[in-house]
């Protein structure tokens, strides 16, 4: 840990697309091993913020620091190496590969075998491959898919694909896990399982940032909630305060006239 007590610090970032100010001087920070929810009505700028943090595009102004180090100018795969894992809103698995192989790709940054290594199969790399497989199976076990390791990933039902994507993201051993609407398309039972999983992910020392529509999940699992509306942060605090916050009510339900 650096002297900075926050794992991720977002410092007054802004981003505009053409004339639309998608993110307007937003700041907040995540303390280690917390679960933070990022909510807001449609078009509030959640996805933009998510893409900024995962390095898809840079902010126009402001800075994002991960473990005290600015992420600007870093490629997406470098951020993964630094300890930033993510999932996708629309589940993007490697469809031609098996469930196990998907997780093994997730272990890419934690393994080192190159082309030459793969040809010669030195004892060290054979061992690495065996460890990787064990680790991948552990992760599949963690999300409850170990029995399906050799199925094609595209054959899984949608809810399980979500879990597989979670296992794949965890494989890179992230310090910070960013989940983009993980409950979208899940039924209530599946959402509950997901909530428990997120809870136990935190227990493993991983900080979670959750961008979510599902209020019940957010309120139940998050320690803190950040509310965005039209690109601005309008509230931040523990779920209880957010629930009774007037600005939040107004943003979601419309202002009483």
């Amino acid at each position: 840990m650096t002297s900075n007590a926050h794992l991720l610090a977002i410092d007054s970032i802004s981003k505009a697309f053409g004339g639309v100010q998608a993110i307007d001087t937003v700041s907040f920070a995540l303390s280690p091993e917390s679960i933070t929810g990022l909510i807001g009505p449609n078009g509030a700028g959640k996805t933009t913020l998510f893409n900024l943090v995962t390095g898809i595009f840079p902010p126009d102004s402001g800075d994002i620091r991960f473990r005290g180090e600015s992420i600007s100018g870093k490629a997406v795969h470098e951020l993964v190496g630094m300890g930033l894992g993510r999932t996708f809103q629309n589940v993007e698995l490697f469809s031609s590969m098996s469930v196990l192989e998907n997780v093994l790709v997730g272990l890419h940054t934690r393994t080192s075998c190159g082309i030459i290594g793969s040809v010669f199969r030195t004892p060290r790399l054979v061992k690495e491959e065996r460890r990787a497989r064990e680790r991948a199976l552990e992760l599949l076990d963690f999300v409850g898919l170990a029995d399906l390791a050799h199925q094609r990933s595209s054959d899984l039902p949608f809810g399980w694909q979500r879990l597989l994507e979670l296992a794949r993201a965890l494989a890179s051993k992230p310090d910070l896990l960013l989940l983009d609407e993980p409950a979208a398309g899940l039924n209530m039972g599946e959402t509950d399982t997901l909530g428990e999983l997120i809870e136990s992910i935190r227990k493993h020392g991983i900080t979670v940032l959750l961008v979510e529509h599902d209020m019940a999940l957010t309120m139940k699992t998050c320690d803190r909630i950040v509310v965005l509306d039209r690109g601005k942060k309008i509230a931040e605090g523990p779920p209880r305060t957010i629930q009774s916050d007037e600005a939040v009510m107004a943003a979601y339900l419309g202002k009483p006239k």
């Binding site: 995962t54 490629a75 997406v76 795969h77 993964v80 190496g81 894992g85 993510r86 996708f88 993007e92 698995l93 490697f94 469809s95 031609s96 590969m97 790709v105 997730g106 890419h108 940054t109 794949r168 993201a169 494989a171 890179s172």
Partner: peptide, 12 residues
Amino acid sequence: DGEHAAAAVGVD
């Protein structure tokens, strides 16, 4: 299968 997803799990 998906270049974006590959980058997002750390593949250069």
